[in-house]
Amino acid sequence: MHRPFRPGILGILAGAGVAAALAMAIMLPVDTASADSEARFRPVDDPIVKAECGACHMAFPAGMLPAASWQKVMAGLSDHFGEDASLDDATRREITDWLVANAARPGSRLARDMPADGTVLRITDTPWWVREHRGEVRPGAFEDPKVGSKANCAACHRDAARGNFDDD
């Protein structure tokens, strides 16, 4: 290390360093908790993912599943929950990359509440989703003709498209 011997500036630099470190220490946990808390999710903002994965249902926020789950979903599009949702290879790869890059962050509170090995393909099968809805939704609500499916998030969460699930 070749630092100029100028205690004044060094002192300031060191002070700034400590302040920055402190700020990081405070900011980081707050950031991980709020970026994808269990009420607010970053909505899909990639135009291709939004169009292709939003055609039959809302484009689910990538942060709702771990990377391995997205990889598995994207590898099985020709039999996608009982339907053919296949894409050309280039588009499929592009979407997979985006979902994986924006998946629930390893170690985050949400990620710790889901198996990381890709065994869960449905958001509605994750432990966190099940817990959030247990006792909150009246019996038969998902089968109600106006809802029709657990995956019809927007039927109950009017602000779902903007990533807000705490609106009701």
Partner: peptide, 15 residues
């Protein structure tokens, strides 16, 4: 798509 092409349909996920 329903049997009436002039009315709106619905996906299995309710959209």
């Amino acid at each position: 798509h329903t049997a009436d092409p002039r009315s709106a349909g619905r996906t299995r996920a309710g959209k």
